[in-house]
Design a protein around this nucleic acid. Structure first.
Lengths: 193, 193, 193, 193
DNA sequence: CATGAATGAGTCTTCATTCAT
DNA sequence: TATGAATGAAGACTCATTCAT
């Protein structure tokens, strides 16, 4: 009695997730280039060939992982989707960002590792660019409303700070005082009065 | 007309430099893994075999490049080496840091690219850690003197900010308003009164 | 309402034919090695696994296709099976051969493609050898009766010509003047007086 | 004391030839797809990797072999290059063609094997097409001069015959009466009076 | 010192075939 | 009977490194 298409689809989705999880773990901890398909297959408990039943190539695999991370990221910003950031939303955004960072350390390791690799994955970088630009726009509007003198620079500065904090936390999660920093950020970069 | 040992040493050093420059250029623009020894030799105008006369391996080559970058970095901090940072020295440090960034973009691309690659360059990372710790110490002292409430967090924050700015500038040197940001940094993170 | 064994057998035979047709199409147009079982299954509208229910292996599949083609070929020769070729039968043979060629282009593409592949299909080749030998014998007898000086050579020549024409027509069906050539053949190689 | 560029060039050319010879042998006897780079390297007495020092890919290798065969082929036709075929040249051409066939059996096996493979090596096929067209043109002129009624068809017929003979001889060099056929060809297709 | 030919382990990928359901 | 997930052996190709000259 053969499985129904629905059963197959469900199995496929689960296995896909399983492979992506295994791959993310390895990519994050060993680097994309240093992780072989063999490694991934072993970690996922499957055969080498099976990976290609789920992903067309190593590149599509990492691209899928990144994409699925992007979705998380998108939810982070402007939760009610009205194109405007309130102070409460700003606070929420900072808090949520760092929570997400701590919760998905592997993903962010991979993300930063890839973003800093030249040439590779221009596609991925383009996707991020769009998100970043959107966010920057939101922030500029926010700082304008807050009466900041040079809102654009302020937005850049804040963005850089978020990146820097993320990077430092990723490299040294045990030492970096994320919680304290979080508060400071909100005070000094959120409410401009 | 045999050359003196000194002349030999000088020639050797020049050739080493020449290879390192070629390699840096390629590593920064194409990535470490995507750059082959062949590429480097071609770019340096020498033969593949000769490279191994100057560097034991690809890894030693990249390690040497990083090391030589570290020296530049070391000179940046605490110029008079007295273990104390004055406000003028702080300003100077910020300015010099960003100038160095703009001047040696390739090197910093490589540096960030490698720092985010796990496992591979643990050795390199250790060297950096030492420097960072030293610098952090200096900053903490500085902020203490400036009467900052939580000098340690402030030092971390400042460090993260510097990293974040560097990273953003590296990824988008044409867009990122480095000069404006530089001034803001000095105002907001240098003089605490 | 269970089916009778005969119905089963008929269904089986139909499905077999369906798979063979799909495979022939692909083998002929993409080549044997470039055609995967997946491709064939897809083209035949069945699953990969089911294919193995009807054919033991890819090789048996192609072998079956060839065999079924051989049967057509056998009917071409000596229609009344008396072991002797009359001039009318000769004419008929030439005409029928080329008609069959034009009608089953895919099959002949496959046939020639495989015949020129060494080693792989020795078995197939042996079967053909037998047919060819039989045909050659018939032709030799025919030319003897026609009073040709060296009937054996003439038979070889005629055989080579038929192959050559087939090959050229297969490679360039649009350019090759099959109809004209057909007539010439009959005139120059059929009636020797 | 390093080798001079000339020495290197000479060594390279020799090794290239050595690899091509090994590959031709295998391609001809086992088929292109059934011959692995490993096989070729073993046959040539070199390592797998070295092949790629001399040829960019398996396809470039076979393409080079074919190209070098084309050169032989080109010399066969119209030896004095005046664009006109005399009866003597026609005889010479037939003789030379079949001599070349017998001498380079491996090459012609490969050639026919590849020509009958669909899709693969369109490039190769295009090169041949040009040669064939040139030759056909020559033949048409030749038959016109000889007063043949339909010179174009005659040229096609002759071309097909040459191909067919080649094919049959390749498949059965021991049985096929090449010498006799050669004479017959010249008599029946060379001198039309 | 200098060259580039040579090696071989390792990489990604394909695909005929098997098997649980 | 029918499905497609799973396997694993094999293939083309890359590249850091060594070595004869």
């Amino acid at each position: 009695m053969p499985r129904t298409p629905e059963q197959f689809e469900k199995l496929r989705e689960e296995k896909r997730r399983q492979i992506m999880d295994a791959a993310l773990e390895l990519f994050a901890n060993e680097g994309y280039h240093s992780t072989s398909i063999s490694n991934i297959a072993m970690q996922a408990g499957i055969s080498k060939g099976l990976m290609y039943n789920y992903f067309e190539s190593k590149e599509e695999l990492v691209s899928s992982i990144i994409d699925s991370g992007i979705e998380i990221m998108e939810d982070l910003f402007d939760p009610n989707n009205d194109g405007v950031l309130t102070t409460d939303e700003f606070d929420f955004f900072v808090n949520r960002s760092f929570d997400a960072l701590a919760e998905n350390l592997s993903y962010w390791k991979l993300y930063f590792g890839i973003m800093m690799q030249p040439l590779v994955f221009e596609i991925v970088r383009e996707k991020y660019h769009k998100i970043i630009e959107g966010t920057l726009g939101l922030l500029v509007e926010y700082y304008k409303k807050q009466g900041v003198e040079d809102p654009e620079s302020e937005a850049f500065l804040f963005g850089a700070l978020m990146d820097g904090i993320s990077m430092n936390y990723i490299l040294n999660p045990d030492i970096f005082p994320l919680e304290k920093i979080k508060k400071t950020i909100i005070e000094r970069f959120g409410h401009k009065d």
